[in-house]
Design a protein around this nucleic acid. Structure first.
Lengths: 197, 197
DNA sequence: TAGAAAAGTGCAACGAGTCAACTTAGCCTC
DNA sequence: GAGGCTAAGTTGACTCGTTGCACTTTTCTA
């Protein structure tokens, strides 16, 4: 994935970072997020608390350790989609191919429980998705040849990024993702089916 | 609006609360959110920091002082809509009638600037809207006669509540709200107009 | 009038996060 | 290989949001 650190120095840095992340995850799963302090984590990783903050921007970031590629992958899915494929279908493909396997991974279960049972982490997790709205919106606008602040593009980006959040916790995630993309594609009031009319 | 506090005690309590809120807003507008501490506010309102937290759940809550009626109004808009009106149209009416006038109020301008320029407040503001998703989703499900965890209802509630967020900062808010409801009603890919196809 | 209940105070504490000064260790160049 | 540069890590003190506790004052009620 990423090129391995070459010097001893960088290897040690990476090792320290990993030790912190490992200790944090272990303690969080053992005791719960709120019952673990940064000091606990620093002690377990045998570093000082300031070192923890040198490697991670905050306590929540210790839980979500890999977010770099998401934005790039997202915009690439739009920009490098197959000929004739609509943007919405490209995004549907991307979510189905990239996010579903991750979410379905069995090792992910207790991790997901941790996030779902901690309000601070739930909020942070949603923000992680929605952080990419601007980039995705710009990519869509480029592809459609409209201005970057186009309202429909901004809305589409925002709503698409809510789909993983909405599908999380559903028994059949794949079906949920498909249904949600269908709703975005055709709307809640397609001619002849006004809900509650 | 709310029945006026009757006893001396409740009047004093309300006065203290108001003094805190006023001091907070004044200081925030003067110096910026991050440059004002709870202790500053307590001093300005001539109370102790503990008293501040007896009246407000946290620092952000000092900025948004009135959120009670929103949820009730939202679900009522769905449940007590006119005969033959679709749920989506009822929500569109409600947003246009209730939220637009508030947002357009000129006195609101510097307040909006404060919120927009402070990341913590932006995030909190979005959470204030989305906090009502569950209640709105349940109301919609009731009206449609489907289960409370129905996916389409949950998605509709969530997306509708994003509309004020999306419309904020647009030059023509009313047009933006209308356009966004139209998108939700008919989708991004109505037959014959596949975007980017 | 006594006393419960609520409102408020003061103080101390905790945890997250920052800052500045210092040490250590890898790396580079002469 | 010596000396110097730099990044990683340490230390300790500090700010700030937030909570808990013990206490006083005010107001309502039996």
């Amino acid at each position: 994935m990423t090129s391995p650190p070459v010097g001893r120095r960088e290897r040690k840095k990476a090792a320290t970072r990993q030790a912190i992340a490992d200790a944090a995850l272990r303690l969080f799963l053992e005791r719960g997020y709120d019952q673990v302090s940064i000091r606990d984590i620093a002690d377990a990783a045998d570093v000082s608390t300031t070192t923890v903050f040198k490697h991670f921007s905050g306590k929540e970031a210790l839980v979500f350790d890999q977010d770099e590629h998401r934005e790039a992958a997202l915009t690439a899915a739009v920009r490098r989609r197959a000929d004739g494929q609509s943007i919405l279908d490209a995004l549907r493909r991307h979510v189905l191919d990239s996010w579903l396997p991750l979410a379905a991974h069995p090792q992910m279960a207790e991790f997901t429980d941790l996030v779902d049972s901690t309000p601070a982490l739930r909020a942070y997790s949603e923000r992680m998705w929605t952080r990419h709205t601007d980039a995705l919106s710009a990519a869509i606008a480029d592809e459609l040849g409209v201005r970057h602040d186009d309202l429909a593009c901004a809305a589409l980006a925002r709503f698409v990024l809510q789909i993983p959040v909405l599908a999380r916790g559903r028994p059949d995630r794949r079906a949920a993702v498909e249904a949600l993309f269908d709703l975005l594609a055709h709307g809640w009031e397609p001619a002849g089916r006004p809900p509650g009319g």
